[in-house]
Deep mutational scan, measured.
Amino acid sequence: MAAAAAAGAGPEMVRGQVFDVGPRYTNLSYIGEGAYGMVCSAYDNVNKVRVAIKKISPFEHQTYCQRTLREIKILLRFRHENIIGINDIIRAPTIEQMKDVYIVQDLMETDLYKLLKTQHLSNDHICYFLYQILRGLKYIHSANVLHRDLKPSNLLLNTTCDLKICDFGLARVADPDHDHTGFLTEYVATRWYRAPEIMLNSKGYTKSIDIWSVGCILAEMLSNRPIFPGKHYLDQLNHILGILGSPSQEDLNCIINLKARNYLLSLPHKNKVPWNRLFPNADSKALDLLDKMLTFNPHKRIEVEQALAHPYLEQYYDPSDEPIAEAPFKFDMELDDLPKEKLKELIFEETARFQPGYRS
């Protein structure tokens, strides 16, 4: 834990890192770190609560700039109880001085990944967590956004079992017609939660990839272990087919990539493993919904509104309290091709509203 900075004593240090967030945020305490930044909790002297502050230093890398800009653009436009918001952003007053960006968010005690390492969940908890994931996802999908990296560590939890989806750095506007060349190379989302079509096709992607990830998360809540822990690309596919069985001819016809289709045709026939054999203690309604989410063919996979209306979630289902976005989200430009200098300018502009004396 960093010592509390005395008023006016300059930035606090946390594990050798400068955290320049005073005077409003003090009493910093280390939480963890990701690929390009550290997260601390801090005391907000204005709202009198502890908050989470993520320090991001992305400006050396085009990919990190892209992810940072995506996350900020999306989260500043989203407003939903099951999606983490941005409360404040701290950065230098000029673009030349801006080396880091500090993002202030609600402090959540833990995440689903940490929880599943230590606790076996009751059916009631599984049901409530799944409902909140789908409630947040309904809003995301209504904005025409794909999260693309749903996994237990991106689901934040607090002691009252509130759940918030975080990390929109890989999110995209849904565009089933656009052929994202190089899709697989830039697709760094965790393999275990990846839909089979991501490994088999490169053309376009749809909201059904997020539903697949939610199915993987439900299976993990039922058993405290990942359902498809593939060691590499082909191993991942083999794990999936080992449980779902061989795809039907109709399902194979959806695979545009001939090499991928021929690979699947070359494999020995596998039978589907019954879900109640894998999860003998699970609620039968939970397994019915799991089956509809972990469907090989993305066109037959359940959609988020149908999933919310499934009998497993009937005690929570309330369409009048499951809000959607006001308007579909649009990125003005494809960020993939922009140089990091341009992305830095866009991050600077996007964060201006939090600067003292800002006038829109």
Rank of each mutant, 00 (worst) to 15 (best):
6 A>S: 13
7 A>Y: 05
12 E>N: 03
12 E>C: 05
14 V>D: 15
15 R>D: 05
16 G>T: 08
19 F>S: 04
24 R>F: 01
26 T>A: 03
28 L>P: 10
28 L>H: 04
28 L>Y: 06
28 L>V: 06
33 E>Y: 12
33 E>L: 05
35 A>E: 11
37 G>K: 15
40 C>V: 11
41 S>F: 11
41 S>H: 02
41 S>I: 02
42 A>K: 07
42 A>V: 11
43 Y>H: 13
49 V>D: 09
51 V>N: 10
54 K>D: 03
57 S>V: 11
58 P>T: 15
59 F>S: 15
65 C>N: 09
66 Q>Y: 12
68 T>S: 15
69 L>D: 05
72 I>R: 02
73 K>C: 05
75 L>P: 13
76 L>Q: 14
76 L>Y: 01
80 H>I: 02
81 E>V: 13
81 E>I: 03
88 D>M: 01
92 A>W: 03
93 P>Y: 00
94 T>M: 15
94 T>N: 14
94 T>S: 15
95 I>A: 03
98 M>W: 01
100 D>K: 02
103 I>M: 09
104 V>W: 04
104 V>G: 13
105 Q>W: 15
106 D>M: 00
106 D>E: 15
106 D>P: 01
107 L>Y: 11
108 M>W: 07
108 M>N: 02
109 E>H: 05
109 E>A: 07
109 E>Q: 02
110 T>W: 14
110 T>G: 10
110 T>R: 01
112 L>Q: 14
113 Y>C: 00
113 Y>T: 10
115 L>P: 00
116 L>K: 06
117 K>C: 13
118 T>D: 05
118 T>H: 04
119 Q>C: 05
119 Q>K: 12
120 H>Q: 14
125 H>V: 04
128 Y>A: 04
128 Y>R: 05
131 Y>Q: 07
131 Y>D: 00
132 Q>A: 14
132 Q>I: 10
136 G>T: 04
139 Y>E: 08
139 Y>F: 14
140 I>K: 11
144 N>A: 02
145 V>T: 05
147 H>C: 11
148 R>S: 08
148 R>V: 09
149 D>L: 05
155 L>N: 03
164 K>P: 00
164 K>L: 08
166 C>I: 10
166 C>F: 13
169 G>A: 12
171 A>M: 04
173 V>N: 09
176 P>G: 03
176 P>N: 01
179 D>S: 05
182 G>I: 08
184 L>Q: 14
185 T>W: 12
185 T>M: 07
187 Y>H: 07
188 V>M: 09
189 A>P: 08
193 Y>E: 10
193 Y>I: 12
193 Y>G: 06
194 R>V: 10
195 A>S: 13
196 P>D: 03
202 S>Q: 08
206 T>M: 07
207 K>C: 12
208 S>G: 10
211 I>K: 13
212 W>P: 12
214 V>F: 11
214 V>Q: 11
214 V>I: 08
217 I>C: 10
219 A>H: 03
221 M>V: 01
226 P>T: 14
230 G>C: 14
238 N>H: 14
242 G>L: 09
244 L>F: 06
246 S>Q: 00
254 C>I: 06
256 I>V: 00
258 L>Q: 15
260 A>L: 02
261 R>C: 10
262 N>D: 01
263 Y>R: 06
266 S>Q: 02
266 S>D: 08
267 L>V: 10
268 P>E: 10
274 P>H: 10
283 D>T: 05
284 S>P: 00
284 S>M: 06
284 S>I: 06
285 K>P: 10
286 A>I: 03
287 L>I: 07
288 D>K: 09
290 L>G: 06
290 L>A: 07
291 D>S: 02
293 M>F: 05
295 T>A: 00
296 F>Y: 14
298 P>R: 09
299 H>E: 01
301 R>L: 10
304 V>C: 09
304 V>G: 15
307 A>T: 13
310 H>Y: 11
315 Q>W: 00
315 Q>L: 14
316 Y>S: 00
317 Y>M: 05
317 Y>S: 10
321 D>T: 05
326 E>V: 14
327 A>D: 14
328 P>M: 09
330 K>H: 02
330 K>A: 01
331 F>N: 11
332 D>H: 08
333 M>V: 00
335 L>V: 08
335 L>Q: 15
339 P>I: 03
342 K>G: 08
343 L>P: 00
344 K>F: 08
346 L>W: 03
349 E>T: 06
349 E>A: 06
350 E>K: 14
351 T>Y: 01
352 A>E: 10
353 R>S: 14
355 Q>Y: 09
358 Y>A: 05
